[in-house]
């Protein structure tokens, strides 16, 4: 418990998390407002449409999570941390938990904020969250944000350099997973096992809300939405376990 408090103090006493959180919330919710304002009969507003910008928030939160570790390495405070808490695994797990919980909260704020502002702008649209698909689409965002943060902390711990960690995370999540689909035949089969594709499947499976061509290609996933979430969680946590083992072994 003390370690969680320690990591909370550390995270909130620097500026970059505040910037990242503010950017993630305002830009995502702002874009949701812009989208809602431009919906019409041809492109009607729905719960799914209101959530279509949440990927942006997730990426910013991943940057925040990676920075929470890499700045400690950059400024040497990781050594101060390991002097105060020689059990490195505990210290890093506490950090991961704090960052993941915060990411989860931001995810919910982004999701319900986007939904709320859309409802305000188009009060007549069908924005009721009345199916499990819609609940998953909105309330599930926090879970996806939290697990992406775990993944980002793991990459940050392994790479230790800000530029490297941020570039790897963003290029992988935003580019590699979709470019893989260009490989004829097998590309799609590979994509069906890629973590962020599964995160997206968890949020959007069975929701036919996106306009044609705007969403990711529909893949034939091996799991249902909750299975996809479990798979995404397993990969994130697996990577974290590897990162913790490495951090424990190597010189600080």
């Amino acid at each position: 418990m003390t370690l969680l408090a320690v990591e909370r103090i550390k995270l909130f006493s620097t500026r970059s998390p505040w910037w990242c959180m503010a950017l993630a919330v305002t830009l995502t919710v702002g874009m949701a407002a812009l989208i809602a304002a431009n919906t019409n009969d041809e492109f009607p507003l729905s719960v799914g449409v209101s959530q279509s910008f949440s990927n942006f928030g997730m990426i910013v939160i991943m940057v925040m999570a990676a920075l929470a570790v890499t700045t400690e390495y950059r400024f040497g405070t990781i050594r101060a941390t390991f002097l105060a808490v020689p059990g490195r695994v505990q210290a890093l797990i506490a950090k991961t938990v704090v960052v993941a919980v915060l990411a989860g909260v931001i995810g919910e704020v982004v999701a319900f904020g986007s939904w709320g502002i859309s409802t305000l702008i188009k009060p007549n649209a069908d924005m009721a969250i009345n199916s499990s698909v819609e609940w998953r689409n909105v309330a599930g965002t926090g879970l996806v944000f939290a697990l992406s943060a775990v993944l980002a902390v793991a990459v940050g711990t392994l790479v230790r350099q800000t530029a490297g960690a941020v570039a790897i995370l963003l290029v992988y999540a935003l580019l590699v997973e979709s470019l893989i689909g260009l490989i004829p035949k097998i590309g799609v089969n590979i994509q069906e096992w890629m973590p962020f594709m599964h995160a997206n499947n968890f949020l959007t499976a069975d929701s036919a809300a996106l306009p044609e061509g705007a969403g990711p290609p529909r893949l034939d996933f091996p799991f249902g939405p909750w299975g996809s979430l479990a798979y995404f969680a397993a990969i994130s946590v697996g990577l974290l376990v590897v990162a913790l083992a490495v951090a424990k072994k190597r010189d600080a």
Partner: peptide, 14 residues
Amino acid sequence: WVHPNRSAKAHLQW
């Protein structure tokens, strides 16, 4: 070994 944007007090507090 101090985060440059953290205050001296916050550094000691954690």
